[in-house]
Amino acid sequence: MFTALAGTPLEDINQALSEHGQFLPFDPPLANAGATLGGTVAAGLSGPGQFRYGGVRDFIIGAKFIDGSGKKLKGGGKVVKNAAGFDFPKLFVGSLGRLGILYEITFKVFPAPQAYLTLSFDLGNIQSALNAACALAGSHFEPFAIDIIPPGRLEIRIGGNHQANERTAGLVEEFVKLPASRKIGEMESAIWSHLRDFQWATADTLIKVAIIPSLVGDLDLVLEQIGATRHYSAAGNVAYVDTDREGLPAIDDILTRMKLSGLALRGDIANPRLGCKAAAEAETTIQSAMDREGKFLPL
């Protein structure tokens, strides 16, 4: 585990952890763009690697924060297992800085895999890529990341001992029944920094959507129709959509209609939360209890 101040850049964290052979398994995005630990928690952002061991919510174990009246508070602790008191650290994940100001955060970490290997498959279309992604997600190959780039590219990241990775890669190719292009080393990590850091997204608004695999096909079809660039991560559990500002209302409508929720990660938007807010009532209840003077923006 480690404890750091909320404003610590992810790059510093990644560097310090790698010196000890450890890593943040949820693979936080935008480290090279200067993202901080606190911002990552507040935005609730996890990278492609979340597929293997879980997202930011699964690794945060302690949080200290300041409430709207200036009081210092804390939740959780500094040990990897703790069932005492309410789990405020998890609650802060995705809270957009609207429940309090995080100032110190504790995470559990895992040993970093010795090496990675990535297999790129071309399945031709989104549905075939998705089917293969779901089958691999339920298999015992334990990939670190399963991402889909429309129309039909499937990126499978395998982590561990170098020789074991090669053997697993062969078995994955047999499983998918297609040959794949294999990458290791810098070429391999470039694939994932491109995806993790949204280097593919060039429009002014980037949206994260929480989705389930069975709805990816439908969403992809409508996004195709409105011409939005997109990419799916964590075996069809996250969609990232890149659009112009003008495209935003349409996407908000689509998400609401499909009962999905989204979050604008960048762009000039009054309220970054899009689509459906099923837990709105519970969120309001919690916010009223935590911010009695109403100092923060409503959730």
Binding site: G44, S46, Q50, G54, G55, R57, F86, D87, F88, K90, L91, F92, V93, G94, S95, L96, R98, L99, K208, V209, A210, I211, I212, A234, N237, V238, S261, G262, L263, R273, K277, A278, A279, E281, A282, E283, I286, L299
Partner: peptide, 19 residues
């Protein structure tokens, strides 16, 4: 009756399910 979270491993908004 309240509904928290969804069937995705991803979520938006504060993690009330976790709380």
């Amino acid at each position: 009756v309240i509904e928290l979270g969804n069937a995705s491993t991803e979520s938006t908004g504060p993690d009330v399910t976790g709380l």
